[in-house]
């Protein structure tokens, strides 16, 4: 099981823990994530607002890098996935668009190459039963709020689960023994793109998400997007200062929790990196 792996910029910087934990998890599961060479930034959220064709051109370039490794490009970052999948679907369905992009990027589009989110790979390719067999430390008694944010399942054309009511992360974490909670803000936006101009608005949005998870009885939030994780984790101090609410609710990557369940150490999944540390909670549950 080999996939062409596209980490993207965040996973080599602020979200290095996402990258590291995913690789640790993949190794334990026997999945090879082979990093593509010469990759560039996907352009994330600003590029398609300035120049949609260029955004698709970058995605086409990135997809072409998978040649010789696999027809499936594994992506972890929700923004990278969103950008690449959207371009891929458009090029496959719209011949005119495809010609435009091919001309711009100078690279022919290969309709066989597919952008795959790692969640989708675990669910469909690897399978929950196989995953269950690899679990050595079940996440029992851990009440997890699975947070999808806004990019992962929107628009419906790129979704790998029900776009209105995705349950894929719940399925996977439950396979690893966790208890997932039913909560209201799983698909709400965390406000990441307004982080700089409208910090107050972001604090409010994040506060809503955290409060909703807390009310539903969650011990911890699982994320699948570097921006979401950073926001939910780092803003808690600001919320305490400005809104006077102390959540103290760790927000980690789903790969970190799965890695631990499959026998990785806290260090191997960089669990200590969070601002709101998950370590005391996981110790209390005998997972570290």
């Amino acid at each position: 099981m080999t996939y062409a792996y596209y980490p993207g910029c965040s996973l080599k910087g602020t979200a290095i823990d996402y990258h590291t934990s995913a690789l640790a998890l993949a190794e334990r599961l026997g999945i090879e994530l082979k990093e593509m060479e010469d990759w560039v930034c996907c352009g994330a959220s600003p590029i398609h607002q300035r120049n949609p064709a260029l955004a698709s051109g970058v995605a086409n370039l990135l997809l072409s890098l998978s040649e010789g490794i696999s027809k499936d490009v594994a992506v972890l970052c929700a923004a990278c996935y969103h950008n690449m999948k959207k371009a891929e679907v458009e090029m496959r369905e719209d011949g005119k668009k495809r010609n435009e992009v091919e001309e711009l990027s100078g690279i022919p589009f290969n309709p066989e190459v597919r952008t795959r989110h790692f969640l989708d790979i675990l669910d469909k390719d690897y399978g929950l039963n196989a995953l269950k067999e690899k679990v050595v430390k079940p996440l029992s008694e851990l009440r997890v709020a699975c947070y999808y944010g806004c990019l992962l399942s929107r628009p419906p054309e790129i979704a790998f689960d029900d776009p209105e009511q995705p349950m894929i992360m719940e399925r996977i974490l439950e396979a690893a023994g966790a208890e997932t909670v039913s909560w209201s803000h799983r698909l709400e936006c965390c406000g990441a793109s307004h982080a700089v101009p409208l910090t107050d608005a972001v604090l409010r949005l994040v506060n809503d998400v955290l409060a909703s998870a807390r009310d539903a009885g969650a011990d911890i939030i699982a994320c699948a997007c570097p921006l979401c994780q950073a926001n939910l984790d780092m803003r808690q101090e600001g919320i305490r200062a400005k809104l006077g609410v102390a959540h103290n609710l760790p927000a980690v990557y789903f790969t970190q929790l799965l890695g631990i369940a499959c026998g990785a150490t806290g260090k191997q999944v960089m669990i200590e990196k969070g601002m709101v540390s998950a370590v005391p909670l996981l110790r209390a549950k005998n997972l570290l």
Binding site: W183, S184, H185, L187, S212, D215
Partner: peptide
Amino acid sequence: SRIYRSGDHLI
């Protein structure tokens, strides 16, 4: 787009 419970109310 969405309905969820918040305490005594549905939002």
